[in-house]
Amino acid sequence: MIDGGAVFPHRHLTGIEGLQPHEILFLLDEAEQWIDANRSRGPSDHRLDGVTQINAFFENSTRTLLSFEIAGKRLGADVVNMHAGQSSVKKGETLIDTAVTLNAMRADVIVIRHGSSGAVQLIADKVDCPVLNAGDGWHEHPTQALLDALTIRRRLGEIAHKRVVICGDILHSRVARSNILALTTLAADVRVVAPATLMPQAVESMGVTPFTDFDAALEGADVVMMLRLQNERMNGGFIPSTREYHLRYGLTRERLKRAEPHAIVMHPGPMNRGIEITSDVADDPERSTITEQVEMGVAVRMACLDVLTRRSRGVEGWA
């Protein structure tokens, strides 16, 4: 009998920070079962019947929200979405008050996205149910890192000692932070690439090697992970122009030749085609894993929702 408390003792998933390698691998293993189930669309699973899942999104999102909604529904949960635009947050209610309100509605699991780093932890400290971070500011986006790790593992067999190059706006990216934490914890060789204006200070203290030269970083890469360049960073703020960014950091077929021949290309989406990645690379089924990442996202989120609610559902070995 596996003791759930020992395998995954965390009440919330607010970040990759603080997770042990075996805990990350446990979540990936749990996700594996849902990949085939989702593809075959066999008999529905009802393990989250009667579970109320609130997706509280204080920041706009289409893909992640949809992914969490589908994940919850595939497991039988009652999924409710709360958008910031429709909530009293805009009427000046504090985040803590919102958290207390959500708590009073007796949610069984709350999925939160918020524009400020640390906001999800703040809510997690105030509610009685498990909280899943769907992205907080520039801080963390743990399910993205888990789905990326799962994608790499399935394509390349393992993660340890693989050379992963993460390229783009590292400074403002929660995807980059969570991926750095997950991949270094799983012993990958992680390189981060960004212009100096988009590189956080002391990033090497997180166990990665920073590069400003994309071509140099690509040498020997097994994985090339491109980040989305946000509109507000373009055109003078942090980079002179999108065409100049493309010149130095755009992933083209030519540039990809510097990586290993088997190297895969990842992107968390949505892509700026022609800026950080060209269409011929993004659409190459041999190299690009971009749609596969979306598929893994549902599986990983199903696993997280299942695992985090096991205690409250009284699953044997977890209660």
Partner: peptide
């Protein structure tokens, strides 16, 4: 700017 701010994403 430094390790703590980078880790916290502040």
């Amino acid at each position: 700017a430094g390790e703590t701010a980078t880790r916290l994403g502040l």
